[in-house]
Amino acid sequence: MLKMKQLGKVFHTGEVSTHALREVDLQVNEGDFVSVTGPSGSGKTTFLNIAGLLEVATSGEFLLDGDNVNLLSDSKRSKMRNQKIGFIFQGFNLIPELNLFDNVDVPLRYRGFDAKERKRRIEQQLELVGLASRMKHLPSQLSGGQQQRVAIARALATSPRFLLADEPTGNLDSQMAQSVMALLEDINRQGTTIIMVTHDHGLAQRAKRQIFIKDGRVSELTAVEGLHSAGLERVTPLHAHTVTDAARQLGV
């Protein structure tokens, strides 16, 4: 379980302080699929970075499975990332010099699995994303959609409980985006908790929960599919913390 209490992040550049996140209170439960939307510069990536232990909050508390991650050393955060979190990046972030097998192998080596176990997991994940036959190919020999699938395979190889996706379909055409989204939904159905930052409202609405970030403040819009049709996407973001609140404001 992921829990943020009054979480804040301030960036200091010279004498200028920028509040990227302000007083974030959020709980993400096991099996959730949370989409995060918001305008550019709203703090979405900072939110994802903190949720994924890539950055540390400057105030508040962040508990991941009960551990206050703000108090952990860099090394322990790295290990926790490797064990519990998988990342999918907008630009895929595959290592261009390594073939698909070696790319998926990267987090497994950091975990310390033996060669046999690594091979089993790599083959299993590449099979899952439909690229098992191309494991000796380089990323540059694949299409964008295929590269993102490899990135998903890499993210899932360590069997993480949380999958954080930063604009996973941002560099894909709509057909490939639908395909990747379907894959993510499938992964979520199998029990992996997903937090996905996206600009695509259509994809965001397919998540179980929707988070909207503006000026560093987080609002939760809805958690039920029935609200989509009620025109939620047109509603000014609210500080609605329950489905009931949101429904009341929409008059549903």
């Binding site: 860099d74 790295s78 490797n82 990342f87 972030n93 990267v106 950091y110 890499r154």
Partner: peptide, 9 residues
């Protein structure tokens, strides 16, 4: 990316 995937310093 390597750090994000769990590499320690």
């Amino acid at each position: 990316t390597r750090r994000a995937l769990g590499a320690t310093q």
